[in-house]
Nucleic acid binder design. Structure first.
Lengths: 321, 321
DNA sequence: TTGTATGCGTTATCAA
DNA sequence: TTGATAACGCATACAA
């Protein structure tokens, strides 16, 4: 065990109260005294015991982030931005992979929210917020991010892509594509549903009747898009729409069998993918901003548990080329 | 704040000492009494305050994992296996992304190891363990995983791939390939160096002089393998060797421009990649086992800080086809 | 401007 | 087999 506050106080020749106040800036201290304390802290290489501090104040300076798929660069980007945001206020981020499983989400929530973290950010795999309520202590700080649950009544940071998708599909239609194949994500997610709706609307607004043969979804059992992509091509698509970066990346092997024969629009979930998608049209999602906003919001929620619930909406943008 | 131990004691009609001992199994309690306590715990939905417990016992039941690149499925696989392993003993995992930066690794270490976690597992981005020693309290429990540092003197879980690589290169040579192009990872890493050494040795053992024109590395500035892969093909390679799954996956777009013209060996870092690599030869790395062993070892190290240091070696396997 | 003393919720020692 | 009580290291109300 390292030095404690009493050691610092002794070395600086002051009381522990003064040391505490110097560290926390919680009351005025004469500059000269404060300097002496700071010197003692450095000399002893003192760091406050976080358990003692938590016990006293009731806050752990730790945020939990429940991620459905930690290996998806989309979420990796979000992890980084959340971490950066809350670090500004001295908070740490605890990331837990829920593997797109509602049950894992529930059990993780149960163990995190009873003493490990001060609040949680959730990119949830469940459909309805009621599935989580038994595992969240009453009034526990929660921010949902990316995916919107049914019956949501907590803070939410969401990206709206309707317009960007509509524009992109319209763009393809105007270039003469009549068979636009789509591969979307897991069908029960709000993001997937919204993306499908926008596509559907754009197609029907242009007088085409949507065709089941052109639309595919990933599923938990089968997350490999390659065979789906092959089916779409066999069904005669001349343009392809990918609902997320990873799906597009995994499908590159198929696309490159027939280079230049397809026009592609893909979601760009993370700037890091841009290189890979040269020559494709992209719908750029503000992933980093979403993370930062979620980080900011969870800290606000912790500070003001009774403030009114907020829904923060960001927007995707379509870039041709 | 929820129920505390005193509430449980009152409801069960016993002292807090008895409640504590029932929870921790730290001394015999009459079955009938224990049952009453358990019932009270359930009734009040009581969970021990982890800060108070940590303050008293000095242990946080939390392990830190420093990951160089959280978006790499290799590490995602390891995260899952570590988490699963330590959860068996009631520990949580705190994952922090160090972005292949030694400096971030140092600063994260500094903040984690002074009160947040009981021990750390590190897949390190630095070259020499001395670069970390200033940021690790003396005798702090550490397990290195995957990458071996110079002057290592801590526990280590490492995969040895020498034989598997040698066999794979020999296999390609025996099939008549004389120009085997390679793309390896970051050049300062032990894993990269070991892989290069094995390749080099296999090639020279077969009477060929290794050719700089056939070997490429990723770098922090340029982690996109696509142009490298194109160079190798222009240089006349008929077979390609990929030092990790992601590099191979990102190169699929190039490979598929010329399907069937190349024979490919790639590391298979995670079983989840297998589908994507149909038709390629793979070197299978026991990634999940590495994570589990690292998790097991950090708990052993925490329990026995003065036990002799261990180096745990696992082995990759070459599978043709 | 600074110091004293109490208590946060546990675990564990000592006593019964 | 069980209970009373003293720490653990800190923040803070109250005193000076």
């Amino acid at each position: 065990m390292g030095a404690k506050i009493t050691d610092v106080a002794a070395l600086a020749g002051v009381s522990i109260a003064t040391v505490s106040h110097v560290i926390n800036g919680s009351r005025p201290v004469r500059k000269e005294t404060a300097d002496r304390v700071q010197r003692a802290i450095r000399e002893l290489n003192y760091t406050p015991n976080s358990s003692a501090r938590s016990l006293k104040t009731g806050n752990k300076r730790m945020i939990g982030f429940l991620v459905p798929d930690i290996s998806n660069l989309f979420f990796a980007t979000m992890i980084d931005s959340i971490e950066r945001e809350i670090a500004k206020k001295g908070y740490h981020l605890m990331v837990v992979n829920t593997c797109e499983s509602g049950e894992k989400e529930q059990s993780v929530l149960q163990s995190l929210c009873t003493g490990i973290v001060d609040g949680v950010i959730i990119a949830s795999s469940v459909g309805d917020s009621q599935e989580l309520s038994d595992y969240l202590p009453k009034n526990f700080p929660v921010v949902f991010v990316d995916r919107r649950l049914k019956n949501n009544c907590a803070d939410l940071v969401e990206t709206v892509s309707y317009r960007a998708i509509y524009e992109s599909v319209e763009y393809l239609l105007q270039k003469g594509h009549e068979k636009i194949g789509c591969i979307f994500g897991l069908p029960h997610l709000s993001t997937t549903q919204n993306r499908y709706d926008a596509y559907f609307r754009a197609v029907s607004d242009h007088g085409l009747s949507p065709d089941k043969a052109l639309v595919r979804n990933l599923s938990i059992e089968n997350s490999n898009p390659v065979p789906l992509c092959e089916e779409l091509i066999e069904n005669g698509c001349t343009a392809l729409f990918f609902g997320n970066s990873r799906t597009c990346m995994q499908s590159l092997c198929v696309l490159n069998h027939y280079p230049d024969r397809y026009e592609v629009v893909t979601f760009l979930d993370s700037p890091e993918y841009r290189e890979l998608f040269r020559g494709m049209h992209v719908i750029e999602q503000p992933t980093g901003t979403m993370g930062a906003m979620a980080g900011e919001q969870i800290l606000k929620r912790i500070a003001h548990p009774d403030a009114p619930t907020r829904e923060i909406l960001l927007y995707s943008v379509f870039h041709e080329n």
